[in-house]
């Protein structure tokens, strides 16, 4: 035990606003991120969630893990539901001090719900939209989405003798959000929990539509060990494949620099089963070079070193 006399007293740990007992897999990055986000936002929060893993594991009938006001409607419309809540509160004159969060997975955000999301940005609602980016439709059995990375194996982009997996790169969703002229866009990861909570607090202090994309490792879909969830999140940042940054009014204002900690992309690809095929054949080296090129592009674009 350490001498505690010199240190600042910390209050005992209290239960999170996302209660235990939910059905997320062991080591779920999304459950971790959702819990951290709720604790950063506080109890005075109304949450609208899309269909997806997050909704299914947190609200098995007739239970709910949420200890804040929470609503689920459809796959595509959490941003529209949240917009209705925000306008309703304003009409009643009760909007002061209430955080409104709309959230969804990468499929609900980048593919199915991008229309509703764009509308929410364009109308200027005071809502924080959170995209939990686990890079595929995990809830229905790992189908590819618009945010699935290049060469990743999914059930609808299988790797094999004629394919290296997903043929496309990630949709640049933060840039699409920023192009709407919204005041705050940020990218975070479950791999850096303190940074994630700071970004949530910063976003909620700004009035207007905000977009936060959180990289959440998925032990099931990415086929990595459950205890490696945080490490994989960190490796994505350190290899340059998932740069984390903040944008205000369309300009990048803050990036997490890599400096000497920079790693080759193999460090991130190797522990994950969804990239296993790249290491199984000698031709995979060429594919890894293409992935390194994507990382190098990010590093140059955001000035990460």
């Amino acid at each position: 035990m350490v001498d505690t006399a010199k240190k600042k007293e910390k209050p005992p740990v209290v239960e999170s606003l996302l209660a235990p007992g939910h059905r997320a897999c062991a080591g779920c990055g999304e459950a971790l991120a959702a819990r951290l986000i709720m604790d950063a936002a506080g109890s005075n929060t109304i949450v609208a969630t899309t269909t997806g893993c997050l909704e299914v594991f947190s609200t098995p009938y007739p239970e709910s893990a949420w200890k804040v006001a929470w609503i689920h409607s459809l796959f595509e419309n959490s941003s529209a539901v949240a917009a209705g809540i925000e306008v309703g509160l304003r009409a009643l004159g009760r909007e002061a001090g209430i955080n409104i969060i709309a959230q969804g997975g990468d499929g609900a955000t980048a593919d199915i719900g991008i229309g509703c999301l764009s509308g929410m940005f364009e109308r200027g609602h005071n809502i924080l939209y959170i995209c939990y980016d686990n890079e595929a439709y995990m809830n229905t059995g790992v189908q590819r989405s618009g945010l699935t990375p290049f060469d990743s194996h999914t059930s609808t982009s299988p790797s094999g003798s004629v394919s290296w997996g997903n043929p496309t790169e990630k949709k640049p969703l933060p840039q699409i959000a920023a192009a709407h002229g919204i005041p705050y866009v940020a990218v975070a990861t479950a791999g850096y929990p303190v940074d994630l909570q700071n970004k949530v607090k910063r976003a909620l202090s700004i009035k207007g539509p905000k977009y936060l994309q959180v990289h959440v490792p998925c032990p099931l879909g990415w086929a990595h060990k459950p205890e490696d969830t945080i490490e994989i999140g960190r490796l994505a940042v350190l290899t340059g494949l998932y740069p984390i940054y903040e944008m205000e009014n369309g300009e990048v204002t803050k990036v997490r620099k890599l400096g000497k900690k920079r790693l080759p992309v193999e460090a991130y690809l190797k522990p994950q089963g969804r990239f296993r095929h790249l290491f199984a054949k000698p031709e995979g080296k060429e594919e890894i070079k293409r992935i390194q090129k994507i990382a190098d592009g990010n590093i140059e674009r955001f000035g990460l070193v």
């Binding site: 939910h22 949420w66 200890k67």
Partner: peptide, 8 residues
Amino acid sequence: KPGSSKAN
């Protein structure tokens, strides 16, 4: 009820 998942 909020937090009722604790039953599981």
